[in-house]
Amino acid sequence: MQQAARAALFGAALLTSLAAAAKPIAFQDGWTVMAEYGTDTMREAQVFYAPKYWWSGGASYTKILAQDGHFVREIPVLQANYLVHRWNLPAAQANVFVWGGLGAAKGFDGEGNFSGVGTGKLGGQADYETRSVYASLKTDWYHSSRFTNRIDTLQLGVAPYEHDYDELATWLVVQARRYTGGVMGGRTEWIPMVRLFKGNFWVEAGADRDGRAQVMVMMNF
């Protein structure tokens, strides 16, 4: 029953939100640099340059760690991101992005160490935000001859006050994340976070009930 409720929440978010998390495309001639420390299950770093406002390219590095320690997968890829559609509304913005990349993974699992394993990455994000509410649903899928992993991340946020352009923005965000491939034994990771940004610098941090930290920093320039 609990699983059904969670699945319903994900489904509702997918249908009703076209969400805005950290966007993979900043603006034409803009750079996006991002690093994430995702509790004890994920590390990620990305650098993208956008020749146009609707696409960007660059490099992404993801490390996926099984909570019980039985595997680690490091997946660097060359990645391209595409803005499928943007809705610029009078008091809101919504986006749909997709991305894909190719790389070579290394790590270890039950069969031993591996390296140079050709790996493909596909993903997408839908987001919606106003100055006071925010929702984002993102998925990343990694596939190779050695493993398959999907990471689904839902973020819902509210702003305690409506920030303006030159002010510190504060958001209270709840993040739900699920992994396939035995990372967390099928459980969902729930993390309340505080997000702050001002100018071109963004930081968000939180922890789950067991005190496992989640931190993300990002810059656009």
Binding site: A91, A92, Q93, G199, N220, F221
Partner: peptide, 9 residues
């Protein structure tokens, strides 16, 4: 669409 200061840089 002008709702996020970070995105509007």
């Amino acid at each position: 669409g002008l709702v996020c200061a970070f995105c509007a840089q």
